[in-house]
Design a protein around this nucleic acid. Sequence first.
DNA 1: CTGCAGGCGTGCC
DNA 2: GGCACGCCTGCA
Length: 282
Amino acid sequence: MIVKTFADFDLKQIAASGQCFRLEEAAPGRFNLLASDRYLEILDMSARQDIPGAEPSRTYGFSCTEQEFEEFWSPYFDLSADYGAVKRLVPERDRYLRNAVSFGGGIRILRQDLWETMVTFLISQQNNIPRIRRCVRLLCENYGNTVIDLSGQTHYGFPGPDKLASVSEDELRNCSLGYRAKYIRKTARDVSDGSLCLEAFRHMDYATAREALMSCYGIGIKVADCICLFALHHIEAFPIDTHIRQVLEREYPKGFPVSDYNGCAGILQQYIFYYELFHSAI
DNA sequence: CTGCAGGCGTGCC
DNA sequence: GGCACGCCTGCA
């Protein structure tokens, strides 16, 4: 286990922010995370002091080697980016956004696996977070590789395109995917037979990637933007769901000032999403 | 019982 | 371009 401290990094907030459905707080201060076939345990070692507006700096123990952390997990959590600089772009007069940023200041935009993100956000349409988690869990338990952790516990990786291409639509429906099963099956088959090349997406700019994603069966504007933001790290992507749409109508009737945020408006979208989900509940 | 949750495809204009 | 409508499922 290695121990590290970071500013603007709070896993509790990230786990609740709805960008990753395989990061969960299994017990207070104990997190489990699966990314494809990798498993990571994270232990919150900071004394939790929830001072409103305080710099969210936290210390965590990670169940991996220094090398794995530097090579995989640090980029995954986007730890080398300066989120303080993003927050400072929010002008004092925008009270709403200042509050949102201070409330969810530990959020970062993860760099998740492209295939996994495509499937989980296909599942997310017309769906709610607990049910999305359940669908993803069933998919992994039924078709994913087993991953054994250091204490001998079994976890399940995310099934790859070849595996899901071999599963019938009816079997997929057993994971309570509903009508989304045919979207996932077709996408899996397209990737598996080579007619859809995921590697190509990595070399595209935002507009090109978005358009290419939207040409996939079952992927529309909202899901394409989520994939651009959470997997391809196009931080200018600003996914608008029914929830965010209501906020924009209420707080920004003249439109969200995208141009104030030189290509990183998507990060602000996450602060807003998290703020709307939880601030009234406290 | 209806309505709806982090939409999208289809058919129509 | 815009706008209906249906779609799986679980939960209020």
